[in-house]
């Protein structure tokens, strides 16, 4: 897999943030055996921002989450959270961050309340203060009436909300979430983003990994990860603005030849992704008319759309988002087969 179109991250964004940053990642690489999962990633997240790490599976975003959440120690590069070095001041960092895992982390045999109390104790909270925090948070996530039910009896969405309450119990300044909307229906996803937005207004920095475009859309800024590298970092709008105008997708019988002819005729550089010819144009609808006129009878279907984050991903990496994902999935499967598990 060669990504020819990878561009370098904006150095300007990293410099703009400065010392008061909530999260500072610089030159972080990580390898599992001989596979390089993160390759010199650097970025900085100011306080109160909702920052998204967008990438397909295998892009390195989960590894980055693990390192940021202190689950695994960093190998090279430096990470700081609220000015505290993650490797040297791990305990101080742990007190300041809340972690919401993608896989459930609740004890199903305990009630929602008991899970929170247990978690609070691990963070050194106790007594009436802890009880009050549990009550407030369960109320805030709308589960006060289910507080004394074992979490195994709660629905998937309700459990996610307890997970969120768990991550927030010790009032962290930075909340780190791994694919937070896993298992949530669209309504619950929107609720989650609304909730994160209200947290961010209170000054809590939210850093989340996602592979969902619509979730990424609601982040303040996005880091696009592809094969362990930071492909781009910007606001969702700015990322989309990199593709001026519209994206014209054309279905034809033989896309490669068609792309070559379009290039010759119009002097644009079409991409063929997944058998579809993609052309970025500022005057999409007019261009479609020109295409139809120039190649009568060859076009089977054509679509003109505002650029999406997926288009940005394709532009930057030369891969269709899901394609990159399934390739790495296949690679991972191969690997686990070889390990004989």
């Amino acid at each position: 897999m060669v990504s020819s179109a990878t561009t370098q991250p904006e150095p300007a964004t990293a410099a703009a943030s400065g010392a008061g940053a909530a999260v500072e990642v610089s030159g972080v690489s990580f390898r599992y055996g001989d596979r390089l999962a993160l390759d010199g990633v650097s970025f900085s997240v100011p306080r109160g921002e909702i920052f998204g790490l967008l990438g397909p599976n295998g892009s390195g975003k989960t590894t980055l989450f693990r390192v940021l959440s202190t689950l695994i120690p960093p190998q090279s590069g430096t990470l700081a959270i609220l000015g505290k070095d993650l490797a040297r001041e791990t305990f101080a960092v742990r007190h300041r961050i809340g972690v919401v895992f993608q896989a459930p982390s609740l004890d199903k045999k305990l009630t929602a309340q008991e899970n929170l109390i247990h978690h609070g104790h691990l963070y050194g909270l106790r007594g009436a203060d802890l009880k009050e925090r549990c009550r407030k948070l369960l109320d805030r996530v709308g589960l006060l009436d289910r507080a004394n039910e074992r979490t195994e009896t709660l629905s998937g969405g309700q459990r996610r909300r307890v997970e969120l309450a768990k991550g927030l119990l010790h009032e962290p300044d930075v909340l780190i979430l791994d694919e937070p909307s896993t298992g949530l229906d669209p309504g619950a996803r929107r609720d989650l983003m609304t909730y994160l937005r209200s947290l961010s207004r209170e000054g809590v920095t939210c850093l989340l990994t996602t592979h969902l475009m619509e979730e990424a859309e609601s982040c303040d800024r996005l880091a696009l990860l592809c094969q362990g590298k930071l492909a781009a970092l910007d606001t969702p709008d700015a990322l989309k603005a990199r593709i001026g105008g519209e994206v014209v997708s054309v279905n034809v019988r033989e896309p490669e030849g068609f792309a070559a002819r379009v290039q010759e005729r119009f002097g644009v550089s079409p991409q063929v992704v997944d058998g579809v010819v993609r052309i970025e144009r500022t005057d999409g609808p007019r261009f479609v008319a020109e295409l139809a006129e120039a190649f009568p009878g060859q076009i089977e279907a054509v679509r003109v759309g505002r650029p999406t984050l997926e288009d940005v991903f394709i532009r930057l990496t030369g891969h269709r988002f899901w394609e990159a994902q399934s390739e790495t999935d296949a690679a991972a499967k191969d690997k686990s087969k070889k390990k004989g598990r």
Partner: peptide, 13 residues
Amino acid sequence: REGFLQGVLVAPV
């Protein structure tokens, strides 16, 4: 396996 341990591993314990 159930994921509970990861929460303990990132706690300041």
